[in-house]
Design a protein around this nucleic acid. Structure first.
Length: 479
RNA sequence: CGGGGCGUGGCGCAGUCCGGCUAGCGCGCUUGCUUUGGGAGCAAGAGGUCGUAGGUUCGAAUCCUAUCGCCCCGACCA
């Protein structure tokens, strides 16, 4: 049954990923080039991600709204850098109702322009600020090479767009959101991320400052997992977002935008997954525990089902997201493998021997095979499972932190840098010049990921050119 | 856009060079019986105008022409 197994993660990481996404039932290939269909299981995972973030945004004063999918082409021309950044990947609607349109419409690749246009109508007084709006939806970028969740032509996300009266407040907003993203990654997704500022070349088209969280995948490549931008007056000038301040002076608003996309699902796959399939962090897993009954004949079945039903009900009553696998057309061995492929954190196995002894077998997904299996009492099953879920959540994060830290290397020389980025991340002083950054990219394919905020106030030498430099940056090959 | 590969039941493929009978195989699917503590077995079934259009021929999955699409590697990217 070799064809039932995934390709080994260590043999062909890319193929492992491609097959895993489909076989874990997260998504399927759509009939449109580069697009995916997110299946119910994948969407349930996405909803759990969105629910947590949505609650945090609301706690911090944000509100949700919806803007159109289609944006007049002329809007893109208003901000020079923005149009240069996005024009190549726009999908454009040229016809409507059977006739050619007078003005072509772009399918939104991001919504700064149309939201900027509306903000100019809505912002007249300092009393209208801050304006803190989040849009949940999808956007489209005509990517040349796509991969499910990581880079598809259409992807799902939330995009926050805020307008503020002054610079300090806008910057505070940018950092506040980045902190929420960081907290989400550590506490919910069990993905350790590194916060920092993007270099000028890696900056969002039209931003003055782009901050990001960067995560290390299992193959040690970096994945930008969330971004938060400060625009200064770039967009408010382009779209004329002006208000009268308390001193009756006409002032341009300060704006920000920020996003986490469905790409974060790709990050979870590539950080936690193993040769048996997906491994989901308990807090976000659509199914946290699955009950698998095991029996040989009708007599056993009756006894086992009776207990399994009871345990299932207890777990459900304790608000564990639990599933009862009562399929009678597949063997229990098949079910074990099936739920492992889907990444369910805890499996509760109940067979005739357990019924006799008053036990169940608990298998934790992060430790496959016998190592992760323990027999526990049926008493207080919800408590036991709940504690195990917490343990798995913590173990996943710890493993990911250790892996990340073991593969980031401080480097002093350019030769060291070149070697390290072949299979890891390099952390080094950099003079922040585009030339040095470009040289590294051309010679190693590694790019600067971000410059961490908190750095000791020390002076070093740029790892590329040797010039005096104050801050260190992460270099890594990125997705 | 440059290089490479591929379109044949739901999926993965064989057959194409060298045209020939009713287009095969594995997985999956349906039904039945036996099974179920790590990917079960047997039996009987359902399912294909061979990417599309045209041409050559007594006869085309196979040869010719055109066309569409997909995948992989590179350049670009959340």
């Amino acid at each position: 049954m070799a064809e039932d197994k995934l390709p080994a993660r260590s043999e062909d990481f890319s193929e492992w990923y491609n097959q895993l996404v489909v076989r874990a039932d997260l998504a399927d290939y759509a009939p449109v080039r580069g697009c995916m269909v997110v299946k119910p299981y994948g969407w349930a995972l996405w909803e759990n991600i969105c629910d947590w973030l949505d609650a945090e945004f609301k706690k911090t004063g944000h509100v949700n709204a919806a803007f159109p999918t289609l944006i007049p082409m002329s809007f893109f021309e208003k901000e020079k850098e923005h149009v240069e950044g996005f024009a190549p990947e726009l999908a454009v609607v040229t016809h409507g109702g059977g006739a050619e349109l007078e003005e072509k419409l772009a399918v939104r690749p991001t919504s700064e322009t149309i939201i900027g246009h509306m903000y100019s109508k809505w912002v007249k007084s300092w009393r209208d600020l801050p304006l803190l709006i989040v849009q949940w939806g999808s956007v489209m970028r005509w990517e040349l090479r796509t991969k499910l969740f990581l880079r598809t032509a259409e992807f799902y996300w939330h995009e926050g767009h805020t307008a503020h009266a002054d610079e300090a407040e806008a910057k505070e907003e940018m950092y506040r959101i980045l902190d929420i993203y960081e907290q989400f990654c550590y506490e919910q997704a069990a993905i350790p991320v590194l916060k920092g500022t993007k270099s000028e070349t890696e900056r969002f088209a039209g931003a003055q400052i782009t901050t990001s969280i960067e995560a290390m995948m299992w193959d040690k490549r970096a994945l930008q997992s969330g971004t938060s931008h400060y625009f200064g007056e770039n967009f408010s000038k382009a779209f004329d977002i002006q208000f009268l301040n308390k001193d009756n002076q006409l002032t341009f608003a300060q704006t920000t935008s920020w996003a986490i996309s469905s790409r974060i699902i790709g990050a979870m796959i590539m950080v936690h997954g193993d040769d048996k399939g997906l491994v989901l962090p308990p807090r976000l897993a659509p199914v946290q525990a699955v009950v698998v009954p095991i029996f040989k004949n009708d007599d056993e079945k009756a006894k086992v089902m009776d207990v399994a039903d009871r345990l299932f009900a207890e777990l459900k009553a304790a608000n564990v997201r639990v599933k009862f696998d009562d399929r009678d057309n597949v063997s229990s061995g098949f079910k074990f493998n099936d739920w492992e492929m889907r990444g369910v954190p805890v499996r509760v196995e109940i067979g005739p021997k357990d019924v006799e002894k008053g036990t169940v077998a608990l298998a934790r997904r992060d430790k496959p095979g016998r190592e992760g299996k323990v027999f526990v009492s049926q008493e207080n099953i919800a408590q036991t499972v709940g504690a195990l879920l917490d343990e798995v959540q913590a173990a996943l994060l710890q493993r990911a932190v250790e892996y990340r830290d073991a593969n980031i290397h401080n480097v002093q020389t350019y030769d060291q840098l070149k070697e390290v980025v072949q299979d890891g991340w390099a952390f080094a002083y950099w003079c922040e010049s585009t030339e040095c950054e470009k040289k590294v990219k051309e010679e190693t394919k590694a790019t600067t990921r971000n410059i961490p905020f908190d750095q000791p106030n020390e002076e070093g030498k740029c790892v590329v050119c040797g010039k005096a430099s104050k801050r260190k940056v992460y270099f890594a090959k990125a997705y």
